[in-house]
């Protein structure tokens, strides 16, 4: 049991102590269910659409949505490309059986391949990955019409590192899991009954064969989450983290990813010209007169 002091004030940063990331799963579950329910209604919508990959982030999102809105009001879309693994499909189906929501499969291979076949230049695999992410999101938005909200599945680690495709997997109406680090999200996943095989498998965007998040990033989520927690939540400067024994190179790398990708986390910049400008000084809440 963590003491009150440790929870609200004194936390000693230690690269070997993951306990500061521990969350009260029951409280988080309750807060997220109320969030999904309340903000869906405020948007004057009643259903949720979730892109389900078979991974833990979308598993938690869709399970919470089913609890918040009722499984009959949740549409999960499994949108495989030819490189997607059969295991992912199996995991998506397991979730659908367990939590009772409708799961539809909408393959994206045909349209993605047709688009790139027509390109003359050599296409980098990152471009194909981004196209897939945006293709999926365009399907989710299409299927959300007229009364559904698209739920985001980007966790706090991905958002901070910028490890996602802008207007692709990062796009959504509301995001229930965006303030949970990957480590915390796994903890929540186990407590709400996501099968262990889904929680424990190596995270992957499956944008190309053999891709894993940690392989591509070059560090583990466990290491990144602890650094991000102390840097972002606790406001420690990189130099202070290094003094406390965190790896200097890793701290610098993570700090740079956070800085470089900040553009993905904010609305597009609008050139200020008039006396009152959207985004600059025309500042109304999104829940303006909402129920």
């Amino acid at each position: 049991m963590t003491s009150t002091l440790a929870r609200t004030g004194v936390v000693r940063p230690d690269p070997k102590d993951p306990s500061p990331l521990r969350i009260d799963e029951a409280l988080v579950r309750k807060m997220l269910i109320l969030f999904i329910r309340d903000e869906t209604v405020k948007a004057r919508l009643r259903r949720a659409v979730v892109g389900v990959s078979g991974g833990v982030d979308s598993a938690v999102t869709v399970a919470l949505a089913a609890e918040a809105l009722g499984p009959e009001n949740v549409l999960a879309l499994f949108t495989p490309y030819r490189t997607s693994s059969p295991e992912s499909r199996d995991h998506a189906q397991q979730l659908s059986r367990k939590f009772g929501f409708t799961l539809e499969e909408v393959p994206i291979t045909e349209q993605v391949d047709a688009y790139f076949r027509a390109r003359k230049e050599k296409v980098d695999k990152v471009r194909i990955g981004n196209k897939m992410a945006r293709e999926r999101k365009s399907i989710e938005y299409d299927r959300s019409w007229p009364d559904g909200i698209v739920l985001g599945t980007s966790n706090k680690t991905e958002l901070l590192l910028g490890y996602g495709t802008q207007f692709g997997d990062m796009a959504c109406g509301i995001n229930p899991v965006g303030d949970l680090y990957k480590t915390q999200l796994r903890e929540l996943a186990l407590s709400i009954g996501i099968p262990e095989a889904i929680v424990r498998k190596p995270p992957t965007a499956e944008l190309w064969e053999g891709q894993t998040d940690e392989g591509e990033l070059g560090f583990t989520y466990a290491d990144a989450d602890l650094i991000l927690y102390h840097m972002v939540d606790r406001r420690l400067r990189p130099a202070e983290l290094v003094e406390h024994g965190f790896d200097a190179q890793l701290v610098a790398r993570i700090r740079e990813l956070v800085r470089r990708n900040h553009y993905k986390r904010v609305m597009p910049l609008i050139a200020k010209l008039s006396l009152r400008t959207v985004g600059h000084d025309f500042l109304y809440p999104r829940d303006w007169e909402a129920d």
Binding site: T2, T4, R7, P20, R22, D24, E25, L27, V28
Partner: peptide, 9 residues
């Protein structure tokens, strides 16, 4: 404040 081990921060 949703750390484990007590109430909401």
């Amino acid at each position: 404040g949703v750390a484990e081990g007590g109430d909401l921060g």
